[in-house]
Design a protein around this nucleic acid. Structure first.
Length: 434
RNA sequence: GUGGCUGUAGCUCAGCUGGUAGAGCAUCGGAUUGUGGCUCCGAUGGUCGCGGGUUCAAUCCCCGUCAGUCACCCCA
């Protein structure tokens, strides 16, 4: 490797690829949707004390165990690039006592996350998420509304082929009871399980249910059902979530084997899976759930119920249709060099500036090559209108205005130029492709 | 972390069984000295990912390494 290059799994977005515009539209769509659902955007640092994620996401999760970018600060504290957004947002909510001011807080976020995984399609080491969180309300209405937010956002960006899977993990009491039941069930079969699952048996038996390993699949069917372990309260909560989702018209399926990779979830969890096939093996667009214990685990004096989700932007863009970009009304100003270069060049720059101040997207080929090359450049940049400035125009206080679509050209008094351009912009014919 | 495939101009690729590289597109210039798109002509541009080995000689064979990609794992 002779030249410097980007860190593996971390990508550049070049304007020429048109990706920047797609990202921009997606983020705008997310902000629009989340604002309509009553959310406000929060921004937290990319970097936190590693301890936050160890306590928040869970020491035994893959994310913290082997995928976190950690490094030492100048002092002794261990820092980490955030592998997900929820822990940071909750930390900020606690630190700034936002629940003391507002009984219920609805936050959204957009930003980069980091996980040191082997890159693959739709999976990168720096990836980006949009997410939303609700703090301070344990109502099942929150669960339903936030799942609905995620779902309607997907539709707003043209993603229609997806499935929302929901499940309930139950509260702390249920989790403890169910864990015992799973242990009792799997322990006799220990040797037959995959090596990973033998480890999971000790650390987080729940995750065995999520395994795709055929050795584990064999035992899943007969495993005790989580639904049966739910307390009446958990049961009622989950039933109401489903009822609300149905009332909202948000399609979903209940999937009893759905377990999320983060430790902080309780009660409702959900995952949105792409069914268009455009994502390869990484078909999860995102997911989330309820995490009623996280505030307490991160040091909040009072327990705060919470619900949230995150979606991966890269994956959304793989799944979303590529929309046609609107062609902007662009003006190019061209200098006719003779006989006095400096005067005409200055005239071009001054005119371009004036147009920009009036809102016109204006380009100048500042190399000021031959007229031919300037015209070619204007054409390459898809300018709808080219304005020509030369000694004739300067002397007469006029500008030659050429419509690229038709080739029509006429002289316009300098004083009337802005009105002319405004009218041209409104006429659809002038903005069409040349 | 494990495995498969790939790595030649800015991009997409060609290069037969080893003799130090080509095309198309893109870029720049020209074909009437104040005018674009089409066409034609020309030019710029590559230590053939990097390092080592075999050989008289390697882009082509072998090894290593880095990178990309896909899959496993996990998840966004």
């Amino acid at each position: 490797m002779a030249t410097l290059q980007a860190v593996s799994g971390m990508n550049d977005l070049l304007p020429a690829d048109g990706q920047g515009a797609r990202w921009h539209r997606l983020e705008t769509a997310f902000r629009d949707t989340s604002v309509r659902y009553g959310f406000q955007e929060v921004r937290t640092p990319l970097c936190e004390y590693a301890e936050l994620f160890q306590r928040g996401v869970g020491e035994a999760t893959d994310i913290v165990e082997k995928e976190m970018y950690t490094f030492d600060d100048r002092g002794q504290r261990r820092l980490a690039l955030r592998p997900e957004g929820t822990a940071s947002a909750v930390r900020a909510a606690i630190e700034h006592s936002v629940l003391a001011r507002d009984p219920v807080v609805r936050w959204s976020y957009v930003g980069a996350m980091f996980r040191a995984e082997r890159p693959a399609k739709g999976r990168y080491r720096q990836f980006h998420q949009v997410g939303a969180e609700v703090y301070g309300d344990d109502s099942p209405a929150v669960d339903a509304e936030v799942i609905d937010l995620a779902s309607s956002f997907l539709q707003s960006i043209g993603i229609t082929k997806f499935i929302v899977r929901v499940n309930s993990l139950g509260g702390a009491e249920t989790r403890a009871r169910y864990r015992e039941a799973l242990l009792a069930y799997f322990a006799p079969h220990r040797e037959a399980l995959s090596p990973e699952s033998q480890l999971r048996l000790e650390r987080n038996p729940l995750r065995i249910l999520d395994s795709k390993d055929p050795r584990d699949q064999a035992f899943k069917a007969g495993a005790p059902s989580l639904v049966d372990a739910l307390t009446p309260e958990d049961r009622a909560h989950f039933d109401r979530v489903q009822g609300f989702l149905t009332a909202l018209g948000t399609p979903f399926v209940v999937d009893a084997s759905l377990v999320r990779g983060l430790d902080y979830y309780s009660r409702t969890v959900f995952e949105i899976v792409d069914t268009s096939g455009s994502l390869g093996a990484q078909d999860a667009l995102g997911g989330g759930g309820r995490y009623d214990q996280l505030f307490t685990e991160l040091g909040s004096a009072k327990p705060v119920p919470a619900f949230g989700f995150a979606l991966g932007i890269e994956r959304l863009l793989l799944a979303a249709p590529v929309e046609e970009e609107k062609k902007p009304f662009r003006v190019a100003v061209v200098a006719v060099a003779k006989p006095d270069e400096n005067t005409t060049h200055a005239g071009v720059l001054a005119l371009a500036r004036e147009l920009r101040m009036h809102g016109f997207e204006t380009v100048v080929d500042t190399r000021f090559g031959s007229m031919k090359s300037q015209m070619r450049r204007a054409n390459d940049l898809a300018a709808a209108v080219v304005l020509l400035i030369g000694s004739n125009e300067l002397a007469a206080e006029q500008v030659s205005m050429k419509l690229m679509a038709t080739g029509e050209q006429r002289s316009v008094p300098r004083a009337a130029l802005l009105d002319e351009l405004t009218q041209t912009q409104r006429a659809p014919a002038a903005t069409g492709a040349p």
